[in-house]
Design a protein around this nucleic acid. Sequence first.
DNA 1: CCACACTACTAGAGCGCTCTAGGCCTAGAG
DNA 2: CTCTAGGCCTAGAGCGCTCTAGTAGTGTGG
Lengths: 336, 336
Amino acid sequence: MGEKSQPVTMADVAARAGVSRALVSIVVRGVPGASPASREKVLRAAAELDYHPDQRARLLGAARSRTLGVVHDLRQPFHGELVESLYAAVERDGRGGAGWRLALEPTAPGRPPATAVRALLDHRCEAVLLLGPTSPAAELARLAERLPVVVLARAVEAAGVDVVRTDDEAGARLAVEHLLALGHRRLAHLHGGRAPGAAQRRAGYRAAVRAAGVRAELVAGGPGEADGQAAAPRLLHPDGPSAVLAFNDACAVGLLAAARAGGTAVPGRLSIVGYDDSAVASLPSVALTTVGQDAAALAEHAVARAVARAEDPRAPAAETVVAPRVVQRRTTAPPA
Amino acid sequence: MGEKSQPVTMADVAARAGVSRALVSIVVRGVPGASPASREKVLRAAAELDYHPDQRARLLGAARSRTLGVVHDLRQPFHGELVESLYAAVERDGRGGAGWRLALEPTAPGRPPATAVRALLDHRCEAVLLLGPTSPAAELARLAERLPVVVLARAVEAAGVDVVRTDDEAGARLAVEHLLALGHRRLAHLHGGRAPGAAQRRAGYRAAVRAAGVRAELVAGGPGEADGQAAAPRLLHPDGPSAVLAFNDACAVGLLAAARAGGTAVPGRLSIVGYDDSAVASLPSVALTTVGQDAAALAEHAVARAVARAEDPRAPAAETVVAPRVVQRRTTAPPA
DNA sequence: CCACACTACTAGAGCGCTCTAGGCCTAGAG
DNA sequence: CTCTAGGCCTAGAGCGCTCTAGTAGTGTGG
């Protein structure tokens, strides 16, 4: 119903304030070169006209876009958290001229990463952040020849690609230490086999139990609920462990369901620790103690790396490792 | 490491193909006005130079941006699904000149909807799609005076605002019909009190059970797991219903956990239907039969409405109601 | 043979900004 | 009094496209 009026441009503001367009530009960008008096005059005119600079023109006119492209997966809740933290990081960020913006491009079944990246390149962003990309390392390396690439939350080795990820080895170690602190002395790790990250988690677990000199076993699991369920018989016998570190939350939930169905009290008789702090873990009926990634720290580092490399194209790629933390809920307690 | 070369522009392609820039524009846009011969010549030159039009310039130069802004909540898995379907809808869309694009702007704690909408306006998109907005109706109406606004997945009454939502009354009715078809004759609805949508779901339930003439009760629940858990005593007695429709999935899961903990077989002794088809419902250890929204249909209608109103600003706002569907999993079965 | 229509193409003016180069003015130094 | 320095401001040339107007060239019918 309302009248959709012509959008007001910089020229309108300049006319109203009685100055040149260039001066309006100086004022709205907040750069030095205008007297306080005319600055105030321009800002008032802008406010009165409800002027808002056209991003398209701003981006085109400026030599640099100061835009970071983000490729994320809509189906992964953790990506949501990361994106959220990326916005926080980019808005807080003050170093090096400030004013970076984010451009989001999701992937999904039917929308491959290549499409998302293409869209970002077409918007001429200066660097891309890929969240848990599934693309082969060679493809990432190829992309990294065109612009700075930062991979988040996946351990890849690709030439020229920055990686910011969580230290899975430390995560497993922290989980073991949490269980030891509770008094557990008979531990087991329901490991993830060949799933991504599984090797590091196993290594962390092994190192931690060895250091503590406690009884510990390793049981084959996997990344799904079914894997946890299937492993139940090997863990739930009278002589079994008093605490289990599962490969991930799904696997832990499978084990948890089997344990409860079989009458094993959790955490009374068995403590269970998941990994990932996914949405399931925080459900009231699950309340799984788990190892969570520090989304804020990952985002902070990723933005810092992307900006640094965009500012200086000759800066070398680097790997940044962030420590995870144990999120204690209600599946761990001192042994009976 | 790699040489970040100057991006290639339309002029480069024109020079290589030996034609004018205007002709290159005609060819890359795919509009009529070029002979097959020069079309091919231009496309080859473009391919050889790996030319990709600069979106910023394209958007600035064109009279219309043909961009739909999307405001979504990163924490809501269903929004992810919707966005996914929006991409599918917009890419498939052929009517009216085609070629619409999406611009995503997420909301999150720390990033209010106003910020997201502002960003979209600054990009000069032609309409905005708001997913489950929490803003007051008056604010939506105000925004609708500036450009077409389509609200998805929330029932609001605001002047000039298009609404595309799921028919909650039909959803409850479908759930009851599913239970009746299984042979249940003693039903209950664990309703949502004053939660959004609860009234419609109650109405649908009432209408369906009345039409069938079966025994049915109404028990107060709520939107959380705790509400489902708390209602368990009133539902799990020997003379209780053989099937329950819960207000939503969380409520259903609470009841489910209480039932299983108390030794009530689900679905053997009691069938449970949730509502929303949220992520919990599809967990293997839950496998909740539930009423799901048709994200694809919602997205399709939303895009159609947004495009229609952007093409014709005088078109009146409308409300579109989409039928939900029952997603059968493993918490419903014929009564014992 | 000329008007006419139609197709294939080009010139060039925007789109709304940014940003460099330069003008004007007032001071302070020499 | 001249010279330079610096603060404030403006003109105007891009940025890389789109799109209108207009110029050939090619048939077609009268």
